[in-house]
Amino acid sequence: MLESNLATAAPVARMAADGRHPGTAPVADSDSAVRRPGDASDTPQASADALLAARGLHTYYGSSHILHGVDFTVHKGEALGLMGRNGMGKTTLIRSLMGLVRTASGSVTVRGREMRGAATHAIAKCGIAYVPEGRGIFPNLSVKENLLMAARPGVDGQCEWTFERVMATFPRLAERLTNGGGQLSGGEQQMLTIGRALMTNPDLLILDEATEGLAPLIAREIWRIVREIRLSGIATVIVDKNHAAVSSITDRTMILVKGQVVFDGSSEDFRADPDLVTQHLGV
């Protein structure tokens, strides 16, 4: 099933890459920004299996312009790596997609349905689970409560991710069920937020800096789990500094520079072009 997704996603991604190479004038962005939301489904990027997509997204924090007309697509079952240096707008993009920050213009569609401006819970209910930077666990709830409060069947009624399955995936959490969420180590907190996100039986899991500040061994454990989740058919958007690790487990890579997409292509192409790293990601 994954293979077929890859096959459809890859040509689409390459098309996107052509229009978004470094040096592409941002004119194209403002053009797409005025496109009516209904037209989004006609564009090649928003193919029928697009799960979450954005067109010409502009976001401001006060008077500072953070996102400059970002186009973004993630397909069913696809794994997308979202990269960029600090402050380039990765987290803002995700928060814009989730409806957690107000966007100025553009469109956000979930399964082709316009959701820009919708409440965050409505967007999440469309099968999107978000693991934020800094993890967002509830320290005043026990580990078990953190998981149970989020439990619900997925969009198509799927209940594959039960409490038992999360326990089996994260045996470390099983030992700490009655602990308060705030008493966990960083790695355990990360496992808890990922486990909690899975309890919503999502079709898409967004991980923002999931391995930040974790010891290498724990980070490796997180990557193993992400790979496992990915193989279960859940689409993933992964934001992480470790571009080697991300590009090795994703189908597609996207690079943001100053709120604009400068690369959107297959992770294979990304790995083949070390200049991308030095130019856009190196310190």
């Binding site: 957690l100 965050t120 819970h121 209910k125 934020p132 509830f138 320290p139 005043n140 409060m149 909690r196």
Partner: peptide, 20 residues
């Protein structure tokens, strides 16, 4: 649980698909 979670982090509760 949702009420207690909401007292800590409203956005996160919403991001889990719960109408706060």
């Amino acid at each position: 649980m949702m009420i207690r979670a909401g007292s800590h982090d409203r956005d996160m509760v919403q991001a889990l698909g719960i109408n706060i």
